[in-house]
Design a protein around this nucleic acid. Structure first.
Lengths: 154, 154
DNA sequence: TTAAAACCTCAAGTTAAGTTAAGGTCAATA
DNA sequence: TATTGACCTTAACTTAACTTGAGGTTTTAA
């Protein structure tokens, strides 16, 4: 009965199933685990087993990556999820708030860039110093990260 | 006099100068050259010399990268610039148009993503299949590329 | 029960975009 | 003229995010 209880309260998914459901490769799941992004426990035969919420974690990782967030940052944000209990709707909600802001910034950055490309690439100013498109003071976020950024002045 | 003529019509910049003006390292200029993104000729002592428009090229490369465009794509787009003559304002303008579109798409993609994060991460749907945030049919561009994308269904 | 399918670990390979280092030459200047 | 700073080349190293492969174990299903 304890076993059945376990089955009911926290289904144990195999790595292959999780891979299929989430669309990532088994090797990626292993990789995420070594990076501390997801967790699993082992059965008697040393095979990985997952709680279903791993699927949501993966979805979130993917979404974050699509926003240009690195795995390292994702890890840090995921670390704010409760460790002991399965995350609730509220927990996930808090996560989304964090990224919401980053995403907004990123969009704003792209839009500034767009304006510049608009007004500048074809403008004829051949000087790097004057050309606003190459204004190094505009950069993304505090700790850069992500694909989308310009360096701070060096 | 021919030499002076040359000096007047196409100043020859050293790699160090270009590096300083553009804010990239000398090694990066070498690297860009091997990748076919910029060109130079050699003086008697085998040192690189550049035409001033290399500065604009570099600015454009940087801007494109900030948009999430890969060097490979940048190369292809830069290849549409005239080979023989120094690019004109019009030439650069045409370039900017190409990326304008990509940038627009990218922004739109981010905005869709934003809406999803908004409505979905905290929504409670634990299924990858139903969860719109993990909808694999939404991806960026035809040939992916760039940091920001979701895979096509595999 | 036995073969195939699914897993496991660990090491090495991959791509992008550069950077660093080593060993040697060229150019500007005191 | 001599020395220092700027250049040159080639090779190897770096980081992120995975993937591939080799060699071996467990599960599952006929």
């Amino acid at each position: 009965m304890t076993v059945q209880q376990k089955k009911l309260t926290e289904a144990n998914l195999t790595v292959g199933y999780v891979a299929k459901r989430s669309g990532v490769k088994v090797s990626t799941l292993h990789f995420y685990e070594t990076k501390g992004l997801i967790r699993s426990w082992r059965n008697n035969g040393n095979q990985r087993r997952y709680k279903p919420d791993v699927l949501r974690r993966i979805a979130v990782i993917k979404a974050a990556q699509a926003m240009g967030i690195t795995l390292e940052e994702v890890k840090q944000t995921l670390a704010t999820l409760p460790d002991e209990r399965t995350p609730t709707k509220k927990d996930w909600s808090a996560l989304s708030k964090q990224w919401q802001t980053q995403l907004d910034e990123r969009i704003a950055f792209m839009q500034r860039l767009r304006e510049r490309v608009d007004g500048c690439i074809g403008c004829g100013c051949l000087s790097m110093e004057k050309c606003p498109i190459y204004n190094k003071d505009d950069y993304l976020g505090e700790n850069q990260s992500g694909a989308v950024l310009l360096e701070k002045n060096t």
